[in-house]
Simulated scan of single mutants.
Amino acid sequence: MTLRPYSASPLRALLQIGADLTVVVWCWFWVKFAMAVDDAVRSVGDVGYRVQGGAAGIKDGLDGAADQAGQVPLVGDTFGRPFTAAGGAAQTIADAGRDLGDRVTGLALPLALVVALAPVLSVVLLWLPARYRFARRAGETAALAAMPGGQSLLALRALATRPVHDIARISPDAVDAWRRDDADVVARLAALEQRRAGVRPRPVRPSPAALGGAGGA
């Protein structure tokens, strides 16, 4: 089956192209916004990692001071104990900073996906099926119009689905004309259905009766 994504009518095709571009821009905007959210959340996580790095550096300095104090004869252990305790506190702060960085960074991607997918899917899930239905119907209608007897089937579809006033404009007794296989009426009814599907109708050939009437005049 051949899909026809755009209508043969220039105005309708222009509207379809405009709608498609609008959806693309909408999706692009929310993807970029989600990437910005991801960067912002990760920057908050970086604060935790910077705290970890600073506290780890302080701990290393305090551990070095504790080692130096421990070398003092007789009272080294006493002098070194406060530095060791402070180093343990610095390690606790470093661990808390790492935990903060890990937790916040772990939330960055899921949060960005939620921010992007909610608005994108809300539009795409409405737009894509509608575009596919149009493309499929246009392709099926074009293929049917090219088949033997396809014009008659399209005319029958028009009789079944189109408003009465549209049918009356073609013929006041369109059903009887279709039963008699009036070529002119069948072609005009088929053209009505093709235009609705966004397919360019085949040229309508006047029926022999119409040609005879024109010749007699």
Rank of each mutant, 00 (worst) to 15 (best):
A69L: 12
V75L: 12
R98Q: 13
G80E: 01
P73T: 06
A66D: 05
Y49P: 02
G87R: 01
G80F: 02
I58M: 14
G88C: 05
R50C: 10
V72N: 02
G54L: 10
T78S: 08
A90Q: 02
A86H: 04
L62A: 10
V51W: 04
G61M: 13
A89S: 11
T84A: 13
A56H: 06
I93W: 11
V51F: 04
F83D: 00
G88S: 13
G54C: 03
A86Y: 06
A69T: 08
G54A: 13
D77G: 13
G54P: 00
D63E: 15
R50N: 15
A56V: 06
F83S: 01
D77A: 08
F79N: 01
G87P: 02
F79Q: 01
K59G: 06
V51M: 07
F83C: 02
A96N: 08
G57C: 08
G88I: 07
D67K: 15
T84S: 15
G61V: 08
G57S: 12
Y49A: 06
Q91H: 14
A69Y: 08
A85P: 03
G53C: 00
G61H: 13
P73Y: 06
L74R: 10
A66I: 07
F79R: 03
G97I: 04
I58T: 12
G88P: 02
Y49Q: 07
L74D: 08
A69W: 14
Q68L: 15
G48L: 01
Q68W: 14
Y49S: 09
G80I: 02
R98L: 12
P82K: 03
R50K: 15
A56P: 04
Q71C: 01
A56I: 01
L74N: 05
D60P: 04
T92Y: 08
A56W: 07
V72H: 01
G53S: 10
D77M: 01
G61K: 09
A56K: 12
T92Q: 14
A96V: 10
A90E: 04
A69Q: 12
G76Q: 03
T92K: 11
F83P: 00
V75W: 09
R50Y: 11
I93C: 11
G48F: 02
A90R: 03
R81F: 06
A56R: 09
G87H: 04
I93Y: 09
V75A: 10
F79E: 00
I93D: 05
G57V: 04
A85W: 05
A94Q: 06
A65T: 12
G87V: 03
A66T: 09
D95I: 06
D60W: 10
L62Y: 07
G64I: 13
A96H: 06
V51C: 07
Q91S: 14
D95C: 00
L74G: 00
A96I: 04
G57F: 10
A69N: 08
G70W: 08
G70P: 04
T92R: 11
F83H: 00
A69H: 11
A55S: 11
A69V: 12
Q71P: 01
Q68N: 13
D60E: 14
G61A: 15
G87L: 04
V72S: 05
G70N: 10
G88F: 03
Q52G: 04
A55L: 03
G70Q: 11
A94W: 01
V72A: 13
G53Q: 12
Q71M: 11
K59A: 14
